[in-house]
Design a protein around this nucleic acid. Sequence first.
DNA 1: TTGAAAAGTTAGCCGAGACTAACTATATTA
DNA 2: TAATATAGTTAGTCTCGGCTAACTTTTCAA
Lengths: 237, 237
Amino acid sequence: MADNDTSKLSAALEDYLEAILNLSAERGVARSRGIADTLGVARSSVTRALRSLADRGLVNYEPYGIVTLTDDGLRIAETVARRHEIIQSFFVNVLGVEKDIAQKGACEAAHALGPAIIDRLMGFIEFVNDSHKNGDDLVGRFRQFCKNRPAAKDKTPSKATRRKATKTLAHAKPGQKVRLTSINAGQKLRSRLAALGLVPNVEITVVSTGRPGPFMINVKGSKIALGKPMVDKIIVE
Amino acid sequence: MADNDTSKLSAALEDYLEAILNLSAERGVARSRGIADTLGVARSSVTRALRSLADRGLVNYEPYGIVTLTDDGLRIAETVARRHEIIQSFFVNVLGVEKDIAQKGACEAAHALGPAIIDRLMGFIEFVNDSHKNGDDLVGRFRQFCKNRPAAKDKTPSKATRRKATKTLAHAKPGQKVRLTSINAGQKLRSRLAALGLVPNVEITVVSTGRPGPFMINVKGSKIALGKPMVDKIIVE
DNA sequence: TTGAAAAGTTAGCCGAGACTAACTATATTA
DNA sequence: TAATATAGTTAGTCTCGGCTAACTTTTCAA
């Protein structure tokens, strides 16, 4: 019983519970060393985590003893393990992601996704299996679909995601024409730049973006060299 | 360029970048207050995060100034935002999860899932859309499938997930017969229990599990009352 | 133009969760 | 059964990412 703390468990402590469950199942018994190895943390970290879990009434733990789950701990551990498996199964069996990559992603995602999403996900996996029994090989069709599709790079934002962030002069490319919107600096700097013709609404043509050399721009016919700190302060569109 | 740190960014800092990107797009400019409101953190936390991001060369930031993303920061922010959207789109448009629940889950999962999984997920969404164009309403079929399926509870582990964790006497139900495997305690306690007939391999019948009253067991015809601390130390199968 | 309100920063605190180094308890085995 | 190896704990430190309270800067309106 102990504290029966209502507050949600941290992802780290959930991982400890899951590790204890797995070790219990695999080796018959969970010991500190095994937990440390499984999670890749120091033994001392395990000691502290076990004390914390014992305080919450989730494990039976006493110094130098073996670790067992209480009813409450078992319930949580099984929930986490189940989420983990459902997510991993989706990644591997539906999406066709490599097992070790899926493993890593599923482990983290298991803490992020609530019951509603997990239930739907499991339902979806069942749906896919069911379809297969009825002669519709969804996964096979998906694999085929992937082959005919140019691989999208994670780094390249899709049009749907593209946003217009506030741009500074530093974002501009050589030859590009931009309009000065504002200057992100104090009074004195603004008036210094104003003396060079750099005022709101003026048109700027980028000559070269430095690296090496200074950042060169053309404003109303006159070339101006700017240092990196300036370039970051000039907001353009 | 500043530091150009190779180390991976924390989930929290990724969230700051994403918030800056969104604010830039929505309000034209990102300021400290807006970031604090968006993320629901104190303004002072934002100040510190911005300093950290500026140190890594991801934002242009100076005290009291507005915040803009550098090229590197923009790249990361867009990547995170894209992941976020892809995951959320999957939850909402494929799984049919409610938008605000999906929102929360997707936000956290966006930090957990790497390029490989994200790419597949996006591919899958495209596949579903493509199927729909070709007359196969996958999502509709899934919805229908869900209706005919008894809702699974998140808390109840499926048989596939069920594991045999190390059980203590505390897990046993009244009337249940178990066999004592070992006792998780020191020499002195073990011999005390041995005097009561509690030795490895002995059969134990659970009479009552306490709450209220003591935990009662039957060992070779004799009834024994055990305290909670004892019950947790007796490993059974 | 000045003075209050809003925005932003500083300083100091906290808890979680990791680490290392040094110590102690338990197990093994010669 | 004593010596040693292994397991486990303690103590102290660090980083991260929150927080509050108090202070400073900027903005805006009278």
